[in-house]
Design a protein around this nucleic acid. Structure first.
Length: 533
RNA sequence: GGCCCGUUCGUCUAGGGGUUAGGACAGGAGAUUUUCAUUCUUCAAACAGGGGUUCGAUUCCCCUACGGGCUACCA
């Protein structure tokens, strides 16, 4: 029978080979690969969620399959306005576009579970008719009381006969209750003593004793399915072949396996892959939204505004992460290609991804490493592909950009010094307007009249250049300093601060050359006034 | 508590019966850069513990410990 004991070879079978064969058996007529990401629209999209999307997407695209977005909105009490749009936007930003979704439609529409509500009852009733499920009339209050009364209470074989359900009550009473429209749920009847096992694409052989699993609710009193029923019915109806989800779902896997069997769909059950969790960087446990706030880094893909609490949760996008970098770093959390390569484009990931190389253990999220990925991506990006984002950052800070060629030159000059896109304001802003303030502490204490003379004469010298190119500027600058009996270092830093405002940026003469003669001279004057004040 | 999953440098990880246990981030030192960043060189840093199996275990098996997940009419 089914997925019962000894269903699969286990101990002395080479696991990797076995896994490969199970999910891509070349001798079997291959069904088209179809995967789904099935979030519930309850808020912003978490790192771990995006990684689940990514692995789904990579697997599907690698096999020429379909990637489906399905909205699991069956819990109406947790529904949050705007969350679904947010999910769509996140996927779009990351470049992980579903082939079918509520927005896009598709052959298996609708893709929102609330819109599929009528479908589920039929299957739940079918299970009741077959004896694999039953009606339960216990109120939440009664169950709470039981939980208090009985330690480790589970609604299962040990207690179900003492509760109010169609297994314990006389048929006539059940009929009356049903006829009167008494609120009730439908629960799966877990077998008392069976072993349910399956082969997970990541973990290999996993097995459970059904006695330990409670009789999960399948259909709620409001007529909505729970996740357990909905995921099985929809995965079947939508012809899903491979199901990726977080490891937190592993304990309820036996319920799903049994449902696939009871509904008679066992042959069509998808291959399961339970992904390792993304953990808090410090302490322990799953990474949560709160950890981001506590430790100062984003956890959501994009900004999420919670209108109810008037609370903004920051996102990677707004912080200045490139989507490619975000996707890249997520992929490396639990996967690698076996070489030392760490920087991958989406296309490369599609090509190289392999479920066999996904690790089993959870990974602590390291924001420092995340920043490194982004810096690498910025460094490797051509100015052309950064210009729009950089322009946005600059204009947001009140800077006007006239010449694109000038912007591109600047991006190339400073991109190595930027970790986030937002850093371009600090690193490139002064190319567009004179410093708003100067790091006076680095110059004023050591300022002398000789230096004032130097800069006044420097203006003269710079007004009479042949090219205004870096090399010429540097030569003339040095010659003048020497003539004045100044050490180069004594005037180089002040000059930098005059042009830039602080102790950062590329070579000073490169900056001056790019700024041009008029602007350079103007800035010397401006700063001189401040330094000598 | 019960069940399930996991465990290689601080972090992400490679490796896998015999290796100087490799890389990356972060950290230290140095070189270059008369700013800072980049870049380069370099240092330090790990197989949780105990039993097996074996000529030999970090690698395979078992136990323990530790960590994590689940234990809702939430997903």
């Amino acid at each position: 029978m089914g997925f019962r004991t000894a269903d699969f070879p286990t101990s002395d079978f080479p696991l990797k080979t076995f896994r490969l064969k199970t999910y891509l058996c070349p001798t079997m007529p291959e069904k088209k690969v179809r995967v789904r990401f099935a979030p519930s629209p309850t808020g912003g999209l978490h790192l771990g969620g995006v990684r689940t999307v990514l692995f789904n997407y990579l697997f599907a695209k690698q096999h020429g399959g379909d990637f489906v977005l399905r909205i699991e909105d069956t819990d109406q009490t947790r529904y949050v306005e705007g969350a679904e749009k947010y999910i769509n936007d996140c996927l779009a930003w990351c470049g992980l576009i579903p082939d079918e979704s509520p927005a896009k439609g598709g052959q298996y529409a609708p893709y929102r579970q609330t819109e599929r509500k009528p479908i589920y009852r039929e299957y739940a009733e079918r299970l009741v008719a077959q004896g694999h499920a039953y009606y339960a009339f216990d109120t939440p209050e009664e169950l709470d009381a039981k939980r208090k009364e009985i330690p480790n209470f589970q609604y299962g074989h040990a207690h179900r006969s003492t509760l109010r359900n169609s297994l314990s009550l006389p048929l006539s009473e059940v009929e009356t209750l049903l006829h009167n429209g008494t609120p009730h749920v439908i629960r799966i009847k877990m077998p008392e003593n069976e072993t349910v096992s399956f082969t997970d694409m990541i973990r290999g052989h996993v097995s459970f004793d059904t006695a330990q699993v409670d009789d999960k609710v399948l259909l709620k009193a409001d007529g909505m399915p729970t996740y357990h029923l909905a995921v099985v019915v929809d995965d079947y109806l939508m012809k899903i072949t491979h199901a990726f989800r977080g490891e937190e779902w592993l304990p309820s896997a036996p319920v799903h396996l049994l449902l696939w069997e009871y509904l008679g769909w066992k042959a069509d059950m998808p291959q399961w892959a339970h992904l390792p969790l993304i953990l808090k960087p410090d302490g322990h446990g799953k990474l949560s939204k709160r950890d981001g706030a506590r430790l100062g880094f984003p956890v959501f893909a994009m900004n999420w505004y919670d209108a109810k609490n008037d609370e903004l949760t920051p996102g990677f996008r707004e912080l200045g992460f490139l989507p490619g970098a975000f996707v890249n770093l997520l992929a490396m959390l639990g996967w690698n290609d076996g070489t030392d390569q760490e920087i991958f484009t989406l296309d490369e990931l599609v090509e190289k991804f392999s479920i066999d190389r996904v690790s089993k253990a959870g990974a602590k999220f390291d924001f420092e490493k995340a920043k490194w990925y982004n810096a690498e991506w910025i460094k490797r990006s051509p100015a052309e592909s950064l210009k729009v984002k950089v322009a946005e950052v600059l204009t947001a800070n009140g800077i006007t950009i006239n010449k694109e060629a000038y912007l591109l030159k600047i991006i190339d000059m400073v991109k190595d010094r930027c970790i986030m896109v937002a850093d371009f304001y600090q690193q490139a802003g002064y190319f567009f307007r004179a410093p708003l303030e100067y790091d006076v502490n680095s110059v004023k204490p050591k300022w002398t009249d000789v230096k004032t003379d130097f800069f006044i004469e420097l203006k003269e010298v710079f007004s009479n250049t042949d090219t205004f190119e870096p090399a010429e500027l540097e030569a003339k600058f040095k010659a003048l300093a020497e003539a004045k009996g100044l050490k180069i270092g004594d005037v180089m830093l002040p000059f930098r601060i005059m042009l830039v405002g602080g102790k950062f940026g590329p070579h000073v003469f490169d900056i001056a050359a790019l700024l041009g003669e008029a602007e350079t001279l103007k800035r010397i004057d401006l700063a001189l006034a401040v330094f000598t004040a």
